[in-house]
Design a protein around this nucleic acid. Structure first.
Lengths: 192, 192
DNA sequence: GGCGTCATGTAATACGTTACATGATTAC
DNA sequence: GTAATCATGTAACGTATTACATGACGCC
């Protein structure tokens, strides 16, 4: 048994959702920082976005805390590191998944904010706003159906089911939003 | 005509959604910083949260930019300021509402993130997680129906309709989420 | 007299983004 | 050969949160 890492010993390491996201992605098989980022871009980014500039410092912290191991995985002169969960890392991921702490949530949507204040607009301008939001919803729905759901569905064949469920929830939400905006558009069209 | 405020003249003033939120709330009749914050807490906070510590500096910036006027509105020895939109402020609000710029959006939900990684859990733990999320959705739905929708509906009598529509959209979203989680809970219950 | 609310602000801190910086490999 | 992608990182900046600080008014 080597010495216990300082950060863990002193309980300094505060794990945020982003930390757990990285642990989870390593668990799903993403080995490099770059691969982790790519994986989130087609899956979790819709409910927990993360930039590349967050990944590398966070990986360093998780290694320092003893939750991840880091090995050199360079191909010739091309640098790369491969990360894997340690036993402590597995445990931390599990603790997070089973903890009953209230979840952080944050929703920001400038489009809905505009809609909230749309009484200030003429019916024509209201219509223009709603049309744009409707178009956006259609694009997002289409993207989710054609790009996101199939990728998640492919995981199912490896026995990983929840990503597909989550992707379908997202698709259903967009369907509903799209229909709601369509109805509002039709209503305003009658007024105009 | 007095001198043009420096910030406006040099085009230094960058208006964020939060700035427009404040302009919009003043437009709806909130006169003090405190009143603006209270109003957002029962309406826009679900899609554009704002803390008190943001309100006061932002109000100062908007006054400096000439978009809001600020008058002393103290009652006896109790300090208070009353804000109102200037012509430039009205115009800025209108420009924002009609602009076709892509809207900022950000969704974070640690609960969904956990769900995404729930394949790591035993069926019992999956069930516990889904139950907690289901309970949360029920609470949120109930709160929206009993507290938020009625307040927004009251505005309708003053000819302000969009807040109610937005509140109803929110209620529908929670209904759907609640039902979806209920179905998932039932499915997992059969597996357990 | 004390608690909740009204009311205004500042300071410290946390967190995230974009831009910067570098370089190898692969596909066209 | 050149553009896209793989790959790792740092620096500067923007924005939001929590905690701090202060005080008046109204209700029980």
């Amino acid at each position: 048994m080597g010495p216990i890492p300082k950060a863990l010993e002193e309980n300094e390491m505060k794990l945020r959702p982003t930390s757990h996201l990285i642990l989870g992605m390593v668990r799903l098989g993403a080995r490099s920082g770059y691969a982790i980022k790519k994986a989130t871009d087609v899956s979790t980014r819709f409910f927990w976005p993360m930039s590349l500039a967050q990944v590398y410092p966070e990986l360093a912290r998780l290694v320092e805390a003893g939750l991840l191991s880091r090995d050199d995985d360079s191909h010739g002169s091309r640098r790369r590191f491969a990360y894997e969960l340690t036993a402590a890392g597995e445990e931390a991921l599990q603790r997070w998944l089973t903890s009953s702490r209230e979840e952080e949530t944050l929703f920001r949507d400038e489009g809905v904010l505009r809609l909230f204040f749309a009484d200030n607009l003429s019916v024509d301008d209201q219509l223009a706003l709603v049309r744009r939001l409707h178009e956006r919803a259609k694009r997002d729905l289409d993207h989710t159906r054609t790009e996101i759901v199939p990728l998640a569905a492919a995981l199912r064949d490896n026995g990983i089911r929840f990503p597909e469920r989550v992707a379908q929830l997202r698709a259903e939400n967009y369907e509903r939003a799209e229909r709601w905006l369509g109805a509002l558009e039709a209503e305003l069209n009658q007024q105009a």
